[in-house]
Design a protein around this nucleic acid. Structure first.
Length: 520
RNA sequence: GGUGGGUUCGUAUAACGGUUAGUACUCAAGAUUCUCAAUCUUGCAAUAGGAGUUCGAUUCUCCUACCCACUACCA
């Protein structure tokens, strides 16, 4: 009973554009499943539709997976799709357009065995039939009924068929869906499903226009040839599962047929429809892992460029439609792989929640060390024209870490840790710069200048507060005045935190400057 | 229209016949504080509706409603 085959799963995107987060999640679940079972995670490019090929999409997909840390074990080498079979990539090539020679024999095998037939209807003819049916409020489908009256190798005599195959180009190969047969399927996530073949149509397996198989044929043939054990894919494929079952049966591959798991879709935050590529900036959050520049030059933002950590992004995505069964929410990729199970994947569609994504990033930011974050922050500072030592930056981060969600926030939350204020908020000046408080500043300045205690935020704060209280001055007023001189406004970090970061000299200089600059 | 899938607080989810229906995010209030955050505490808030099975249904069955997907020589 137990399947002894080595676990092999695949992620099989179509290079028709950038990968959106739903696709990343599908790839992630495949990756986690492979890791957990000590199996292989294969990348296969399904580019059987030359009309929809988008330059750069394939590279984008590979780079996105790499950034996420869910790099395929097979099918990709040095950031490129493997084009030839090798010891490490024995099932190559991994791009379907380069496997075209493989598929034809399988299509013909199906015809010879009576599971498929040639159809000679042109695309225009079929379009006309659909339009006609639609005008009568009906739907035209190519099935067991209509195939009897259409031009195909089932209705035409062999001579005609031979002639048409040799002299025309507009033929296709269609699957001959059996009549009144109940297809019994099992899905790892959804359980048992049954469908009667009478409700299905005769899908095109081979399209003459491209001289290439359609998804259905190529997919089944490749999954078989690549010895895939589990197919974990999006819910949009569930309706074609009966066809796929029938194909495995027609080929006689039932014994090694992979098990299927159909993932629910990621929905827009509104719940109306699945998250799609067009939603980009429109909804106020990225739908792509990385920035995407279309061939036309249109730019769409990505999680990476928006400042998300890949670990946070992946963690957030993993929990959209799955949970470990306990209360843990922060899990590394390794922990996710250990905890993952298809049984705990949710059947219903998950709406994407941008707020939770931010929360995850904040949590991951806090887990990082100050020096690690300093490394990431340095380029941001440089972009603002600031040069600072890694040591100074780490010190600054230690006091602003808690108020940031993204590395970029270190700057927006407290630019004054790096640049002295050049102006002072009028409103705050009017509110705090009153004679009573203002008068104390020279004395407070001297107290600060003379500070010789331990260089810790807590000690500095205690000294300052002790002094102000000891003098009997209103602490709030004095502190806000002080903050005004140090930051240019009456809000921001604690005074001790600022002094701790900038040092005594800089702090005193700022107070002096403010005393000379601010006029009542 | 047809076929298939789905439906627990606003959102993500837990509870796989017995719980005061739990947790997280968001939001609100309070505490703390030199401001703003952060933090801590508390709070708001859900089983779509109706039948049935059962001693007992969030959980099983059926019907209805709603949502989603598919219905291409696209994947």
């Amino acid at each position: 009973m137990a399947d002894k085959r080595k676990t092999r799963v695949r992620f099989a995107p179509s290079p028709t554009g950038p990968l959106h987060i739903g696709g990343v999640r599908t790839a992630l679940y495949n990756y986690l499943y492979a890791r957990q079972h000590g199996g292989t995670f294969v990348l296969r490019i399904e580019d059987t539709d030359s009309n929809r090929f988008v330059p750069g999409a394939e590279e984008y997909i590979i780079e996105a997976l790499r950034w996420c840390g869910i790099t395929p074990d097979e099918g990709v080498e040095n950031g490129k799709v493997v084009e030839e079979a090798s010891a490490k990539h024995p099932y190559g090539p991994y791009r379907q357009s380069q496997r075209r020679a493989i598929y034809r024999q399988y299509a013909e095998q199906l015809i010879e065995a009576g599971y498929a037939y040639y159809a000679f209807d042109t695309a225009e003819e079929l379009a006309a039939k659909r339009a006609e049916a639609e005008s009568q409020g009906q739907t035209f489908i190519y099935n067991q009924e209509s195939r009897k009256v259409l031009r195909n190798s089932l209705t035409l005599n062999p001579e005609e068929v031979k002639y048409l195959l040799e002299n025309t180009t507009s033929w296709t190969i269609r699957f001959k869906m059996p009549e009144n047969t109940v297809v019994k399927m099992d899905d790892l996530i959804r359980g048992h499903i049954e469908v009667n073949t009478d409700t299905l149509d005769d899908k095109v397996l081979w399209k003459r226009a491209d001289e290439l198989p359609t998804y259905h044929l190529a997919n089944i043939v490749d999954d078989h040839l690549m010895e895939i054990t589990e197919v974990i894919r999006g819910e949009e494929w569930l309706p074609s599962l009966p066809l796929h079952y029938m194909l495995y049966k027609a080929f006689g591959w039932e014994a090694t047929q992979p098990r299927f798991a159909h993932l629910s879709l990621l929905l827009k935050p509104s719940g109306q429809g699945k998250l799609s590529k067009r939603d980009g900036d429109k909804l106020g959050f990225p739908v792509f892992p990385l920035r995407w520049v279309s061939p036309e030059g249109e730019v769409t933002r990505g999680y990476r460029e928006d400042g998300y950590f890949p670990e946070a992004f992946i963690n957030m995505l993993a929990f959209l439609g799955w949970n470990p069964g306990d209360e843990r929410e922060i899990l590394s990729l390794d922990e996710l792989a250990r905890a993952f199970s298809l049984e705990r994947v949710i059947k219903s569609g998950a709406r994407f929640n941008p707020e939770k994504a931010k929360w995850y990033n904040k949590e991951y930011l806090r887990m990082k060390s100050d020096s690690e974050l300093a490394e990431l922050y340095l380029p941001v500072l440089e972009a603002h024209g600031v040069k600072a030592s890694a040591e100074y930056v780490a010190k600054a981060i230690s006091v602003i870490k808690d108020r940031a969600t993204f590395v970029e926030d270190f700057w927006t939350a407290a630019p004054y840790l790096f640049v002295a204020p050049t102006e002072f908020a009028e409103k705050d000046v009017a509110k705090f710069w009153k004679e009573g408080n203002f008068c104390h500043l020279p004395a407070v300045r001297d107290h600060i200048a003379a500070y010789a205690g331990p260089w810790e935020v807590k000690a500095i704060a205690e000294s300052l507060e002790g002094y102000i209280k000891g003098e009997g001055w209103p602490i709030g007023g004095v502190m806000n005045c002080l903050r005004l001189t140090l930051t240019g406004a009456a809000s921001g970090l604690g005074i001790a935190e600022i002094i701790y970061t900038t040092g005594l000299e800089e702090a005193v200089a700022r107070i002096d400057k403010a005393l000379n600059t601010i006029k009542l």
